[in-house]
Design a protein around this nucleic acid. Sequence first.
DNA 1: GGGCAGGTCTAAG
DNA 2: CTTAGACCTGCC
Length: 294
Amino acid sequence: MKNLDIQQTDNGVIVKNIKNFVPKHTFDCGQCFRWNEEDDGSYTGVAYDRVINMKLDNNILYIDNCNIEDFNNIWVEYFDFNRDYDEIKKELSKDNVLAHAMKFGKGIRILNQDPFETLISFIISANNGISRIKKSIEYLSMKYGEKIGEYKGKEYYSFPNAEVLEKIRAENLRESGVGYRASYIFNTAVVVASKQMDIYNLKNLSTEDARKELMLLAGVGPKVADCIMLFSIGKHDAFPIDVWVKRVMEYFYLPKDSSLKYIQKYGQDKFGKYAGFAQQYLFYYAREAKLGKK
DNA sequence: GGGCAGGTCTAAG
DNA sequence: CTTAGACCTGCC
């Protein structure tokens, strides 16, 4: 979106001409874990050492605890505000299923999150439930992260970096409720902190090569690798297959009990460079409609 | 109390 | 290279 109409207020920013963005859709499509809905329907979240609050009202976006400088330097990129989602939707709507799915999560934008935080978060997400994933991430942040500040009486903490996490014994990591994933987190933190792998350089590799690299890390399989690439490394042709996407793909396109590998190839072939966006719309739709679940 | 949840690891064919 | 089983833990 070019030429955003931004205004500074007392303790926030107002953006009047935001398109293709609904906070609920973006925060509830499985890509992030640190945004929470408040009683008034707004969302408060932590990213890049900031805590902000967002509310969309009559197509006007109110961002509290924020200034124009942060908006331009951090949040435009984080929320992918420079990307033309009309173009993506136009292309994807050639597929009837997607055209239908996009009516649900029409305000989804794929975030550009920090690679390390995303890496650890999705290691935690494997074979886990959302509420417990969020609790573990909050615990790790509060215990080992840095205090960012207070907002509406609550304290907020950044997610700990690799140098901090590698010093924590796996048995202590378990106090966050991550269970057997503690050793995965520890081992991955050691590899990242020691620069055996530069996860901040993965964006310069092909999607295929970045995937192979990521899967060398403990606790990172195909699905987690694809999520990391899509949500933090800008690999928008990645097509993560979780249980919901498997259900929706088998419901509309493929026979039941298709292999994950085949579903992934099918999705990437079908949606190409927009596969990741398609995955997000399908995921949101599948969960919203409780597709394939009693 | 058994089953399940935004999968991965391991050991085997 | 594909396929069973086990797996922390909290919540139903």
